[in-house]
């Protein structure tokens, strides 16, 4: 019986789903981290972990070929043997480039799986990004877990190092806006104090793109307005914003 055997369907037929997950995992292997929806990331995580397990098994000589073929099958990868000369690039060069950058089976077995020799499962990490503008889908980053790349949370009140932004939090949410932010505001004179309202994502004016000019203009012309500062979409999806 199929009781409680949950599989994320992702609104797709099984063939479509298998192909999608294979593509996602291939992208993950090639690019080391991918940005996708939370549901797809969680579904791909399962496949990715199993593929890495196969990759680790294949490190031994006698099971190598079998594991490589299994991985190729699961990821729907066709073996590629023929590289014709194209645009003056010789077939040999093309083959080397393909093996270096595109051959996911090779990348998995030579670059990724050996790094997980000490780790028994849980090879991937999902980091939530917030909702995407357009369809409000929760987005996430799926990436390989590497040792030591996620330190424990540090103390809350450490001075900010990176943030190049001038806008800081406001008065109505005081409990967190501590002294160093006030100091920073004083330092950067174009610091615009804006009332960051509680309503976050969907209500904000959709035509608002976050450019410095606009931020400055807002500060000068009128006083606090609902700003899309804390909206969850991330700047990469600028085209999605415009489509709204």
């Amino acid at each position: 019986m199929r009781h409680r055997k949950r599989t994320a369907k992702l609104g797709r037929t099984s063939e479509h789903r298998t192909a999608l997950l294979a593509n996602l995992v291939c992208s993950l292997i090639k690019h080391r981290r991918i940005r996708t929806t939370l549901a797809k990331a969680k579904a791909a995580r399962v496949v990715a972990d199993k593929i890495v397990t196969l990759g680790k098994k294949g490190q031994e000589k006698d099971s190598s070929i079998q594991c490589r073929r299994l991985v190729a099958a699961r990821l729907q990868q066709q073996p590629r043997h023929h590289f014709a000369k194209h645009n003056g690039v010789s077939g040999k060069v093309q083959r080397d480039e393909w093996r270096q950058n595109e051959d996911v089976v090779r990348i998995l077995f030579e670059d990724i799986a050996p790094g997980f020799a000490e780790r028994s499962g849980g090879y991937t990490r999902v980091i939530k990004l917030g909702r995407r503008r357009g369809d409000a889908a929760e987005m996430a980053i799926l990436e390989w877990v590497k040792d030591g790349d996620m330190p424990v949370r540090e103390s809350k009140n450490k001075p900010k190092a990176k943030a190049s932004k001038a806008e800081v939090v406001t008065e109505e949410v005081v409990e967190e806006s501590t002294t160093e932010e006030v100091a920073e505001e004083a330092a950067t004179e174009e610091a615009v104090e804006e009332a960051v309202t509680e309503e976050t994502t969907e209500e904000v004016a959709s035509d608002e793109t976050e450019t410095p000019e606009e931020a400055a203009a807002e500060g000068t012309t009128e006083e606090p307005e609902a700003k899309s500062e804390e909206s969850d979409d991330e700047p990469k999806s600028a085209d999605e914003k415009k489509s709204d």
Binding site: R153, E154, S155, K156, N157, K158, K160, A161, K162, A163, K165, E167, V168, V169, V173, E176, S177, T178, E181, V196, T200, E229, E230
Partner: peptide
């Protein structure tokens, strides 16, 4: 909540 890094909401 507020980002411990930059204080943004």
């Amino acid at each position: 909540q507020h980002c411990p890094q930059c204080g943004e909401a």
